[in-house]
Design a protein around this nucleic acid. Structure first.
Length: 580
RNA sequence: GGUCCUGUGGAGCAGUUGGAGUGCUCGCCGCCCUGUCAAGGCGGAGGUCGCGGGUUCAAGUCCCGUCAGGACCGCCA
């Protein structure tokens, strides 16, 4: 090493020692006769002092020059300590300065105190990462992965890599495709997850598999989504849902204990998917606040108001919402329309009299108005928002409203951690064409109750499928898989997948399942989201070294780029497509 | 595919009902300065106001289009 110590580790105990440091000029304070440099390396900062003998070159220093300095660690003069710095009691009296490399004027400030836009940060991510905050997020992620690996290793899990050039899967998200030079017209797909491979590893008798796996989905991005993302992917043989949940909680417990200083209460609460929808209008409810939905379908039975003559009518209360201005109430209508709803009906309860006001109130009978506050759980001064219509969509609208209310009314405790499992997810949902599709994936096992009869009521059939939710974010999910050929065939039948089609698409898996597949199940954590939460960030970009911006664009490398005619000719892009 | 927000020196922002010269902080360059620590003082450079079109006597400002970024809906088993 060209240095003897790390800058941020020097303390009063080192006073008198001759040391050599290497790092970057974080800041300079040139007083003419004496020059101070904050020298930064990965460990932190230390103040280097240049006087007469060493100051000639030091005048030339600029921010982010990479330098090597040799000198003596000295106690700072009385009154000059800097309690802000871990190294604030001492400084390095420099006798020799070597400029290792110079830095051009910076395109963005590298300053702990200055906000910089995302565009500049991502384009110059290597400069962004010199700042302590962004750097700490990546180090924290490394720690998180280490904690998970250690825990899984202790439990005899095997870390196994699976292919990233694989075959296209018909279900789920859009695949990223890779043309094949040696066989034009054929394509690899990048995996959306290692799902099928981990099941094959169970057939292979590995029993306990895990992998920190890169996954790819060609869908539009969001703050918590990237085209390539990472899962902590886990699969186990001879387990029940309870075993997977126990393991999942152990991982979450270790992560939050060691990285967030938070002890979770085990077992974590479990609520069923239907309960989550009924009470919170979401399959990933944020339990940091109440504001539960109330169903008023039977309350409004027989109402003259046509909007509420619906399959489902529900409500959510906005505490203190009655004082909202007309403009704010109109804002809710725009908000609802933006989500594809016709609007958001509301009733305001006067803070003084408790009297119901608003356009909807005029359409309701005296009796319905009289009992409404109690039925919806509203107090004088509150607003109540309603959604009516299709049960699922209405609940989702109210669920979204609930989140928005909590945000606007500042009801979210930002320091709280609220975990839960959402269990008993439905197996199937209707497709637009009137058939059925798997909610999770077609290898998810029906639960014990529904296994013999899921065909009788596919809309009500429940699966051994579970999601773990933290503060309204789905951070992981999994299921017990089907290991019986008979059940798998029945599921395919219901989904309208013929034997021929199944064999064409998943033949390799079904064939493997002919050879004594063990019962198995697993879970995958969305690792970027987990790390985002642990880092206290509001975007997964903060915990990804080189994230992409919207549209899958990489501001640093400018990928994706056009290819040359020659590359295209060789790539095998232009081979004939498969007949439909 | 759709909705909304934002584009102004290198960075972050301001710019009023359209009205004479786009301003501020930081950074950058030069000089001064021996105890600062987000150092300070003096001086200086740096702008197609994202791009194109339109309205107007006059556009950073209004209108249309377009590009880029962000948030969201659709989508994401």
């Amino acid at each position: 090493m060209i240095r003897t110590h790390e800058a941020g580790t020097l303390r009063a105990a080192h006073v008198g020692e001759q040391v050599t440091l290497a790092g970057w000029v974080a800041r300079r304070r040139d007083h003419g006769g004496v020059i101070f440099i904050d020298l930064r390396d990965a460990s932190g900062f230390v103040q280097a002092v240049f006087r007469d003998s060493s100051s000639e070159d030091a005048h030339k220093l600029r921010n982010e020059y990479c330098v090597k300095v040799t000198g003596t660690v000295e106690r700072r003069p009385a009154g000059n300590d800097n309690p802000e710095l871990a190294t604030g009691e001492i400084e390095l009296n420099v006798s020799e300065l070597v400029i290792l490399s110079e830095a051009a004027p910076l395109p963005m400030p590298i300053d702990e105190h200055v906000e910089v836009g995302d565009e500049a940060r991502l384009k110059y991510r290597y400069l962004d990462l010199r700042r302590s905050g962004p750097a700490a997020a990546l180090r924290m992620r490394s720690d998180a992965s280490k904690i998970a690996r250690n825990l899984l290793d202790d439990r005899n899990f095997v870390e196994i890599e699976t292919p990233t050039l694989t075959r296209s899967t018909p279900e789920g998200a859009r695949d990223f495709l890779v043309p094949v030079r040696v066989k034009p017209g054929t394509w690899y797909a990048l995996p959306q997850s290692p799902q099928l491979f981990k099941q094959l590893l169970m057939v292979a008798g590995m029993e306990r598999y895990y992998q920190i796996a890169r996954c790819y989905r060609d869908e539009d991005s969001r703050a918590d989504r990237q085209p390539e993302f990472t899962q902590l992917d886990i699969e186990m043989s001879f387990v029940t849902q309870e075993d997977v949940i126990e393991l999942g909680e152990s991982i979450v417990e270790a992560l939050w204990r060691d990285l967030a200083g938070h002890q979770i209460q085990r077992p974590l609460p479990q609520i069923t998917w239907h309960e989550a929808m009924d009470r919170y209008g979401s399959d990933k409810p944020d339990l940091r606040y109440g504001l539960e939905l109330t169903e008023l379908t039977s309350y409004f039975a027989g109402t003259e108001f046509r909007v509420f003559q619906a399959e489902y009518t529900g409500a959510v209360v906005m505490p203190g919402g009655a004082t909202q201005t007309r403009k704010e109430l109109d804002g809710w209508q725009d908000w609802a329309k933006q989500r594809g709803a016709k609007g958001l009906a509301y009733v305001l309860f006067d803070a003084e009299t408790g009297e119901a006001r608003g356009p909807v109130a005029k359409n309701l009978s005296e009796a319905h108005l009289a009992g409404l506050a109690d039925a919806a759980g509203a107090k004088p001064g509150d607003a109540v928002f309603f959604a009516a219509g299709d049960r699922r969509h209405s609940q989702e609208l109210l669920g979204a409203a609930r989140i928005e209310i909590a945000k606007r009314a500042k009801l979210v405790d930002e320091d709280a951690w609220a975990f839960c499992w959402v269990v008993d997810a439905p197996m199937f949902e209707r497709t637009d064409e009137g058939g059925w599709t798997a909610v999770h994936h077609p290898f998810t096992s029906p639960n014990e109750e529904w296994e013999p009869k899921f065909e009788e009521a596919p809309d009500r059939a429940l699966a051994y499928a579970y999601d773990i939710v933290c503060n309204g974010n789905e951070i992981g999910g999994g299921s017990v898989r089907i290991h019986s050929g008979d059940v798998q065939r029945r599921v395919f039948d219901l989904l309208g997948i013929s034997e021929e089609e199944a064999s064409d698409k998943f033949g390799f898996l079904l064939e493997a399942f002919a050879f004594g597949p063990p019962p198995h199940g697993g879970i995958a954590f969305g690792w970027d989201r987990v790390c985002m939460l642990l880092a206290g960030a509001d975007s997964i970009r903060e915990v990804i070294a080189f994230p992409k911006s919207g549209g899958g664009y990489d501001p640093l490398t400018s990928a994706p780029t056009p290819i040359t005619a020659q590359q295209r000719a060789e790539a095998g892009v232009d081979g004939p497509p498969k007949k439909a």
